[in-house]
Write a protein that binds this DNA or RNA. Structure first.
Lengths: 134, 134
DNA sequence: ATTGCCTCCGTACCATGGTACGGACCCCAT
DNA sequence: ATGGGGTCCGTACCATGGTACGGAGGCAAT
């Protein structure tokens, strides 16, 4: 356990401190009990390597297109035995991902056509709108 | 020229009427001059096939990851002769698209691993978080 | 013990891309 | 000429995912 402060955790996950606090409010990261220090409000929260893993998972799942709400469910599921539900979520997202990848690939082709048409000489504007028409 | 109403244009582009009006406010679609009818406020706007093309372009460019602001620039560029700028935009977006496609492909693999681990028997939870750790 | 950085907390604000609302007005068919 | 549906317009609101702010207090080094 690395005994990190919130700032160190944020750095480890490549996010800002405010983002950590936001995730805590959303229930995605635990709000660790603060050691009841001498001060009235208590001391400073400490985080461990489990929190770093969890934070990194959140970021990865986001790039996979899960919403924070879905990610919350995944995190709950991770500790539960509901394999069926987890598989459903994964499979649904794989389908969405395949569709999205196809879309992006198509868009890439359109852009390549555009860059091409723009590059090959000739005066006048290159037909940007047309480059995207199927 | 198809002489469409705003509602027909919206249907042709697969968006809502409010979206059309929003794009007009953003300057992405022209606000056609309304024939000065007898009423004080003027008549109803009419749209043609060029508007449909333009609208469809906007949607395609969005799936390519352009923001509406960038799309606005593309639309201006389409009529101008600034080939260099158009190429820059296209090339930058191609790079971003390639990166994004790679990311999504990786995420897809992680999800496939997850679904797999979840499917192959064994009691207890499937390790969702671990499935995403590189 | 003073300086300087960090943390804590609530609340407010932001950008993006829409979506909804309500009242007036218009057009077309019956 | 009356009704119903479409249009027009400004303005308000929404969801998502943060980001900023300000003031109070903590922590460690000098």
């Amino acid at each position: 356990m690395a005994d990190l402060t919130i700032g160190a955790l944020a750095r480890a996950g490549g996010v800002g401190v405010e983002t950590i606090r936001y995730y805590q409010r959303r229930g995605l990261l635990p709000e660790p009990a603060r050691p009841a220090g001498p001060g009235l409000g208590g001391g400073v929260r400490r985080y461990g390597s489990g929190d770093v893993r969890r934070l990194r998972f959140i970021r990865s799942a986001q790039t996979a297109g899960f919403t924070l709400e879905e990610i919350g469910e995944l995190l709950t599921l991770d500790a539960s035995n509901e394999r069926a539900r987890a598989q459903d979520l994964a499979r649904a997202r794989i389908l969405a991902l395949d569709a999205r990848i196809a879309e992006l690939t198509e868009a890439r082709e359109a852009l390549a056509r555009l860059a091409d048409a723009c590059a090959s000489g000739g005066a006048g504007p290159c037909p940007i709108i047309s480059a995207f028409q199927p």
